[in-house]
Design a protein around this nucleic acid. Structure first.
Length: 109
DNA sequence: GCAGTGACTAGTA
DNA sequence: ATACTAGCCACTG
């Protein structure tokens, strides 16, 4: 069920402040996964719907929503982000320079 | 235990 | 600028 890796990923995602986003690779680095971003996406997919983890604040390195298997969830994610003040550009992209969570060199474990 | 899968990323063309 | 490829490795059947 919830492996240690998953819980570490969720712990990092929960640190993302409202109105900010983080990339999969960023989460992987902060969670000491060695930059294995795919596992972050996998963990998000396994996340139960009733979780309080702000999964919608996680986007890919291009600033786009990456959900392939659940296109409906992508719409939900977009609306949740817009509700937090994040403005989407063309092709449902967001400006990472403006909205990316600035974690600096602080690692979260 | 092995093979297939994937909410990714960085590189190359 | 976009499109394709290889590498990555936990999870699933």
């Amino acid at each position: 069920m919830t492996s240690p890796i998953y819980r570490r990923i969720y712990a990092v995602v929960q640190r993302i402040p409202a109105g900010k986003v983080a990339t999969y690779g960023q989460i992987a680095r902060l969670a000491d996964l060695g930059g294995h971003a795919r596992q972050v996406g996998y963990a998000m997919h396994a996340l139960p719907a009733n979780s309080h983890v702000p999964w919608h604040r996680v986007v890919n390195a291009k600033g786009e929503i990456s959900i392939r298997s659940e296109p409906l969830a992508a719409e939900v994610q977009k609306q949740l982000l817009e509700a937090e003040g994040i403005i989407f550009e063309k092709h449902s992209k967001i400006n990472l320079h403006r909205y990316r969570w600035q974690t600096g060199s602080v690692k979260i474990r």
